[in-house]
Amino acid sequence: MRIRVVAAVGLPLLWNNWLLPRLALDHRGRTAANAVAATGYALVFRGRPNWLSGPGTRIGLGCAAVVAAAYTAAVAVPAVRRSLAGAEDRAADVGTLEWVALHIPLGTVYTEELIFRGTLDPLLDTEFGTCAGALLGSAAFGLWHVFPARAAGDNILVTVVFTGAAGLVFGALRRWTSSATAPALPHWAVNAGGALMSRL
């Protein structure tokens, strides 16, 4: 069983930090490859995302609304608005609608929520208990972002810590509702909101 757990933790990290970058795909190729890889991973490790959960949808929509309100309030502050306007566009070759409606929800949110909250977190909770499972799952989620941070020129340690903390919050939402939809909706709102604010 422990070999299975090591594989479940290690395979996503190898995929995102080693194999996927070496495929040298464009945005559309990466989105498709990520979605296929996440689906295969969930099938192999018996993921339980429970996408069609009523409580998950309600909680997720509520959290996404809070995120949207926070972005709206932030844009009202001139210093924040200037900072967002100066942010680098990491998908300049992709239209805004395609980026927000396809690549973020499918290539990022579906992929990450299915792998981490829908599959890995329940497996780790079963193996190690909720507290240790939450810490291990969030650490893996943070480490998933090592190569993307390096490629973007971001501080790797800050990125890992920040995304690991986000993984704790997203994991708590999944545990509360037994659905990956609860974290998926605010996850999309955070990423899509950031993309929209920097472009608009």
Score class of each variant (00 low, 15 high):
residue 64 A to W: 06
residue 67 V to R: 00
residue 67 V to C: 12
residue 68 A to P: 03
residue 68 A to D: 02
residue 68 A to F: 08
residue 69 A to H: 01
residue 71 Y to P: 08
residue 71 Y to W: 13
residue 72 T to H: 02
residue 72 T to I: 02
residue 73 A to C: 08
residue 73 A to R: 09
residue 75 V to M: 14
residue 76 A to C: 03
residue 77 V to Y: 13
residue 77 V to F: 13
residue 78 P to C: 02
residue 79 A to E: 14
residue 80 V to N: 01
residue 82 R to N: 10
residue 83 S to H: 13
residue 86 G to V: 00
residue 86 G to I: 00
residue 86 G to L: 01
residue 87 A to H: 06
residue 87 A to M: 15
residue 87 A to S: 13
residue 88 E to L: 11
residue 89 D to T: 09
residue 89 D to K: 11
residue 92 A to W: 02
residue 93 D to L: 10
residue 94 V to L: 13
residue 95 G to D: 14
residue 95 G to M: 10
residue 95 G to I: 05
residue 96 T to Q: 02
residue 96 T to V: 15
residue 98 E to M: 12
residue 98 E to V: 14
residue 99 W to D: 11
residue 100 V to S: 07
residue 103 H to I: 10
residue 103 H to Y: 12
residue 104 I to R: 11
residue 105 P to R: 04
residue 105 P to W: 11
residue 105 P to G: 04
residue 110 Y to R: 10
residue 111 T to R: 12
residue 112 E to W: 04
residue 113 E to P: 07
residue 113 E to M: 10
residue 113 E to T: 09
residue 114 L to M: 12
residue 117 R to F: 06
residue 118 G to A: 09
residue 119 T to Y: 10
residue 120 L to S: 07
residue 123 L to G: 07
residue 124 L to N: 11
residue 124 L to D: 11
residue 125 D to V: 14
residue 125 D to N: 13
residue 127 E to R: 15
residue 128 F to V: 11
residue 129 G to I: 06
residue 132 A to R: 15
residue 133 G to R: 07
residue 134 A to H: 05
residue 135 L to P: 02
residue 136 L to V: 15
residue 137 G to N: 12
residue 138 S to M: 09
residue 138 S to L: 08
residue 138 S to A: 15
residue 139 A to K: 02
residue 141 F to N: 03
residue 141 F to V: 10
residue 144 W to S: 06
residue 145 H to T: 00
residue 146 V to R: 05
residue 148 P to Q: 05
residue 149 A to Q: 09
residue 151 A to H: 09
residue 156 I to D: 07
residue 156 I to P: 01
residue 157 L to V: 11
residue 157 L to T: 09
residue 157 L to D: 01
residue 160 V to I: 11
residue 160 V to G: 06
residue 160 V to R: 08
residue 160 V to Q: 09
residue 161 V to H: 05
residue 162 F to E: 04
residue 162 F to W: 11
residue 163 T to G: 08
residue 164 G to I: 06
residue 164 G to R: 04
residue 165 A to C: 14
residue 167 G to F: 04
residue 167 G to H: 04
residue 170 F to L: 14
residue 170 F to H: 05
residue 170 F to G: 08
residue 171 G to P: 10
residue 172 A to I: 02
residue 173 L to D: 05
residue 174 R to K: 12
residue 174 R to D: 01
residue 174 R to L: 00
residue 175 R to E: 12
residue 175 R to D: 13
residue 175 R to K: 06
residue 176 W to N: 04
residue 177 T to H: 01
residue 177 T to M: 07
residue 178 S to D: 15
residue 179 S to Y: 03
residue 179 S to G: 11
residue 179 S to N: 08
residue 181 T to N: 02
residue 182 A to G: 07
residue 182 A to L: 06
residue 183 P to L: 04
residue 184 A to Y: 07
